[in-house]
Simulated scan of single mutants.
Amino acid sequence: MTHETYLNVSQMVDFIDRVCILYPKKAECLHRSFLGYKYLRTEFKLPVDLVIGVRKYPFSAHAWLTMFEENINDSNELTNQYSVILKSKEKSYEIV
């Protein structure tokens, strides 16, 4: 991913985060990631993947977006704490 593409995607992800702040209920990572997935794929035709991971102790689950295997809406430090159990592909889901 080029630096310019990364900056454009980062701006779009920031926009999604701002929209979620305005949502009257708390938008969790799954809400933000589904919204970002749909928005970036539909409106901009970007090859974004939705990833869902879990960790055993303390139990937790998390959702985030990747593009070209790079995180685009969360840090590697956070997502590396989770084992991937589901990752979207262009027209299907891969259960890991």
Rank of each mutant, 00 (worst) to 15 (best):
residue 71 N to Q: 02
residue 53 G to Q: 03
residue 82 Y to A: 00
residue 37 Y to W: 12
residue 49 D to M: 01
residue 16 I to C: 06
residue 37 Y to T: 08
residue 48 V to M: 09
residue 4 E to I: 12
residue 23 Y to F: 12
residue 18 R to F: 08
residue 50 L to H: 09
residue 25 K to H: 12
residue 77 E to F: 06
residue 54 V to I: 08
residue 18 R to W: 07
residue 26 K to Q: 11
residue 59 F to I: 12
residue 63 A to Q: 09
residue 51 V to D: 03
residue 67 M to Y: 06
residue 18 R to Q: 13
residue 41 R to E: 06
residue 44 F to V: 00
residue 89 K to M: 15
residue 39 Y to C: 02
residue 52 I to P: 10
residue 37 Y to F: 13
residue 24 P to D: 05
residue 75 S to A: 03
residue 5 T to K: 13
residue 28 E to H: 15
residue 66 T to I: 03
residue 8 N to E: 15
residue 94 E to F: 14
residue 37 Y to L: 07
residue 53 G to E: 06
residue 67 M to G: 08
residue 23 Y to S: 13
residue 44 F to E: 04
residue 54 V to L: 06
residue 35 L to D: 08
residue 22 L to R: 13
residue 39 Y to M: 05
residue 73 N to V: 04
residue 92 S to V: 05
residue 54 V to P: 02
residue 13 V to M: 11
residue 78 L to N: 09
residue 67 M to F: 08
residue 63 A to L: 08
residue 84 V to S: 09
residue 7 L to F: 11
residue 58 P to A: 01
residue 6 Y to W: 04
residue 26 K to C: 07
residue 44 F to G: 01
residue 88 S to K: 11
residue 7 L to W: 10
residue 30 L to E: 14
residue 88 S to N: 11
residue 63 A to F: 14
residue 61 A to N: 11
residue 38 K to A: 09
residue 68 F to Q: 10
residue 70 E to S: 07
residue 26 K to P: 15
residue 30 L to V: 14
residue 90 E to S: 07
residue 66 T to A: 01
residue 61 A to R: 08
residue 41 R to Q: 09
residue 30 L to K: 05
residue 31 H to W: 07
residue 92 S to L: 05
residue 69 E to W: 12
residue 52 I to E: 10
residue 54 V to A: 01
residue 27 A to T: 11
residue 59 F to H: 14
residue 86 L to Q: 09
residue 59 F to P: 15
residue 82 Y to I: 04
residue 12 M to E: 15
residue 96 V to W: 14
residue 22 L to G: 14
residue 21 I to Y: 02
residue 24 P to N: 01
residue 75 S to L: 04
residue 15 F to Y: 14
residue 36 G to L: 02
residue 83 S to T: 12
residue 80 N to V: 00
residue 20 C to A: 05
residue 84 V to Q: 12
residue 50 L to A: 13
residue 2 T to A: 00
residue 36 G to Y: 08
residue 24 P to F: 02
residue 69 E to Y: 13
residue 12 M to F: 14
